[in-house]
């Protein structure tokens, strides 16, 4: 076996590496994909045992009680207080106050505010005017729009309610995910009577997501190792498109192999914990407290709390 003649045909390049003012750009698509992959990797990392202060079933029930209370609440003050309390709790439990605040409130406004923004205008939520924006074009007035486009007090209230509800709910979910490993949560789902098929699908989804996240970031490293120059946006889109297919195929193959390895070791759809958990008095107290807070949240507006 003889290597092609073009390999090593020229003298080795030993001079200093050249520099330029042209920067190697990472495309928006690539950044987004990496961001999602990084988010999944971090999100799916097993939570440290030291933070698992509640029994998984109790943690799940407490979270559900809070989520129901949050979704029924119409009180901005109560929702804001709960959001602050949840952030403080995350800090106390060692999840990192700053990190939790960023994960919850750094992301929530991006999505929920985009949806809630139209609600602040008098077009969708009539009410007392807070700020006048612009005069509405005549043709829009003719089809029923108000003559002046303005922000209304009630509109701000509606949008604020939506953003706070989403933020508080995400805080609950982040706290639950940060203090209970995903595998324990899945077993808790089973123990609470959720159908086995659902738990199995959730377990598979979790594994696919994890495999996908690792595959994407590893492939990106391999790409960096061979990428020489910035490619134009069209080529980048074509590249990302073809890679997505490869990633999907590979993660499916890997996840199937993992599933086969699990079956080979007797997996029948249930995660059996090595250290079975026991419901302690503090777990019961936590659930009762969460139900109490949920009930307060749901009735706060009726009690006159704005």
């Amino acid at each position: 076996m003889s290597l092609p003649t073009w390999i090593g045909a020229g003298p080795p390049r030993t001079g200093p590496l050249p520099t330029s003012k042209v920067r190697l750009r990472t495309s928006f698509v690539e950044k987004t994909l990496l961001g999602i992959s990084d988010f999944l990797r971090r999100g799916l990392e097993e939570a440290p045992e030291r933070a698992a202060i509640l029994e998984p079933r109790a943690a799940l029930l407490a979270a559900l009680a809070l989520l129901v209370g949050i979704s029924l609440s119409h009180s901005l003050v109560a929702l804001a207080l709960v959001a602050v309390a949840l952030a403080a709790l995350a800090g106390l439990l060692g999840l990192g106050l700053g990190r939790t605040l960023w994960r919850v409130w750094g992301v929530v406004p991006l999505f929920s505010a985009a949806i809630a923004l139209p609600a602040v205008l008098n077009v969708s939520t009539p009410g007392p005017t807070l700020v006048e924006l612009v005069a509405t074009p005549a043709w829009l007035v003719r089809i029923g729009w108000p003559p002046v486009l303005s922000v209304t007090t009630s509109g701000v209230g509606v949008a604020g309610l939506l953003v706070l509800r989403v933020g508080a709910s995400v805080s609950v979910a982040a706290l639950l995910a940060g203090t209970t490993p995903p595998t324990r949560l899945l077993s808790a789902l089973g123990a609470l009577g959720i159908p086995r098929a659902f738990v199995l699908v959730a377990a598979l989804t979790l594994r696919y997501a994890r495999t996908l996240a690792f595959t994407v970031s590893d492939m990106h490293l391999a790409l960096l190792s061979r990428r020489v120059r910035t490619v134009d946006a069209k080529a980048e889109r074509a590249f990302v498109g073809s890679r997505m297919g490869v990633v999907l195929q590979r993660s499916r193959a890997t996840a199937e192999e993992v599933h086969m390895a699990m079956l080979a070791r007797g997996f029948r759809g249930d995660y059996v914990p090595l250290f079975p958990t026991r419901v302690r008095p503090r777990d019961v107290l936590a659930v009762l407290a969460a139900i109490g807070v949920g009930a307060l949240l749901a009735s706060a507006a009726r009690a006159g709390i704005p």
């Binding site: 050249p18 520099t19 330029s20 492939m219 391999a222 190792s225 020489v228």
Partner: peptide, 24 residues
């Protein structure tokens, strides 16, 4: 730096331990 990185990648190549990672 596009020029530096380009020449560096031209000169250096890494064979990954996991071939699956490398073939994309």
């Amino acid at each position: 730096d596009e020029a530096w990185n380009g020449e560096f990648r031209r000169r250096v190549s890494l064979l990954f331990q996991d071939a699956d990672v490398q073939l994309f």
